[in-house]
Design a protein around this nucleic acid. Structure first.
Length: 229
DNA sequence: TAACCTCGAGATCC
DNA sequence: CTCGAGGTTA
């Protein structure tokens, strides 16, 4: 089984495996972004490539600059990220930047992404090389529309909170209701699925557990900030 | 098509 | 926590 370089233009029509192999073998293309430097003359010099085909291919490659986020994500060749996962990621985050910035926990909030895939994505983008490929693609003119993620109604949808300790300005039940009204789930115990632990005064073992599991904690002030919008 | 991943259900333990 | 179903990746 042969490993292919991640090609953003892999779905450009007329650019099949045989051509890619030729391009790579002849050192005409060393990285995905270099595809966009190809001109008709160099392409026409390849086997089974006449002027007409060359023109078409260059056209197709240029067309692929206008991408979509899911396609781009898929084309980057992130391990474990195929079509479906790319789409879920795109719809969840809306743009590439937040995905680059997301930590493993945040990645796991995406439907269908668990610890393994989250770790793969994270380490993929941690590698300098992969980031560079990204930058080069953008510099070469690859662009895509941002996806509008509507979270106005439920800004905390998909988040799980745990309350511990005593809150001063509101009761625990009130806090719970408010969180839920914003779409959050409020659980009774801390687990790795917990997103935030709200730590009030005289908090007990749940706060410790949050620290152990590396779960984000918020004090009352932080909670209030979150609630007011 | 085989291997792998996520996630929910039910068992177990606290 | 472990197991299995169902879905995805390659």
């Amino acid at each position: 089984m042969q490993e292919r370089p991640p090609l953003v233009a892999r779905d450009a029509e007329g650019l099949g495996p045989a051509l890619v192999e030729q391009l790579v073998d002849r050192k005409l293309v060393g990285s995905p972004a270099e595809l966009y430097d190809l001109n008709e003359e160099t392409v026409a010099g390849l086997e089974r490539m006449g002027d007409k085909s060359a023109l078409n291919l260059v056209e197709q490659i240029n067309k692929s600059k206008t991408a979509t986020l899911p396609r781009l994500l898929h084309a980057l060749g992130i391990p474990q990220v195929g079509e479906a996962t790319a789409l879920a990621l795109a719809n969840h985050f809306g743009d590439l930047e937040p995905i680059l910035d997301a930590n493993e926990e945040q990645l796991q909030e995406v439907e269908g992404i668990g610890p393994n895939v989250a770790a793969e994505i994270r380490s993929f983008f941690h590698q300098k090389h992969n980031r560079e490929v990204n930058d080069k693609l953008v510099k070469a003119g690859v662009h895509w529309p941002k996806i509008v993620v509507d979270r106005k109604a439920q800004p905390l949808a998909g988040k799980t909170f745990v309350l511990t300790g005593t809150l001063v300005s509101l009761s625990r039940d009130e806090a719970k209701e408010k969180l839920q009204s914003l779409g959050a789930k409020v659980a009774g115990s801390v687990s790795k699925k917990t997103d935030y632990v709200i730590v009030g005064e005289e908090a007990g073992s749940k706060a410790d557990k949050a620290r152990e599991l590396g779960i984000a904690t918020l004090d009352e002030a932080g909670l209030l900030k979150l609630l007011e919008r």
